[in-house]
Amino acid sequence: MSAKPVIKTDGLSKQYRLGLTLKPVDAVTDLNLEVNEGEIFAFIGLNGAGKTTTIKLLLDHARPTKGKAFLFGFDATDPHARERIGYLPDLPHFYQFLTANELLDYSGKLFCLSKTKLAKRSGELLETVGLGDRGNERLRGFSRGMLQRLGFAQALINHPDLVILDEPLGGLDPIGRVELMNLITDLKSKNTTVFFSSHILEDAQKVADRIGIIHKGHLLACGKKSELLQTKAGWEAEIAINEFDLSGLCKKNNWQYQTNEECYTVTISDDEDVQKLYKLASEKKINIISLHHRQLNLEEAFLKELDRWKA
């Protein structure tokens, strides 16, 4: 894949001046990021890490103090850069006085879509997000979940090649999340690039191709999900419970373990210890149900990167 980057930032920095004293606060520092065509990029970090600021800089909602951002090769400050973009803000605030149809109409007109195209497209989109029969209702009466879905619809009005979603999973119930995840993977199947920020790592892990980790404005790590998670993390063994007191053994060998009614889950970091466990198994008649390489989950990867950064 030699795709050219859809999003590229070059030493992007943003400093806000807060309060009466105009105390400088670095929201984003020297961010170098590339997002390629057709991939789902998860931008993760804690609240206040700089995710939303980065998105603002990408969309020209704020101007960078230093550095530049490019979308499809256009400077982000050029409105042309936003022609092929769909954006869903973190909180779905839309005009309460408009109806769903009017909002989509407004959004479409800003892309200069023709009337007939627009009518067809908004009908389609409302169906897709499950608001097909509420098009003529004012948004005042919409629930947060409905607004979020409508927000998704307005973001897709122009058949965007890049969709930027700011915390799209924030206010959704479990069903809503699954639906949204499906929408995101749908987009990928149409070769749309998706850039989304999230602090819910579990969901990011499920759908993302590549992941960027941001903390206090610094990009800690960025790469393919498999690369980030596949770092060596030892072994995990499930052992059936019998008379033998496994906990003593674990403590002796300094193995971490968890237990439930049926089995122990033991985490082993050394290959030598695996041998030891096998030996013990044959001696003490321990029943090993499974033994497999342990994969880091995103949370752990995130914490590991955080530790490394602090060091």
Binding site: D60, H61, I85, P89, F94, Y106, S107
Partner: peptide, 14 residues
């Protein structure tokens, strides 16, 4: 303030 402007200015609008 209400952030309704964000999706609007995310469109190709000067």
């Amino acid at each position: 303030d209400r952030k309704t402007i964000l999706p609007i200015l995310a469109k190709p609008l000067h």
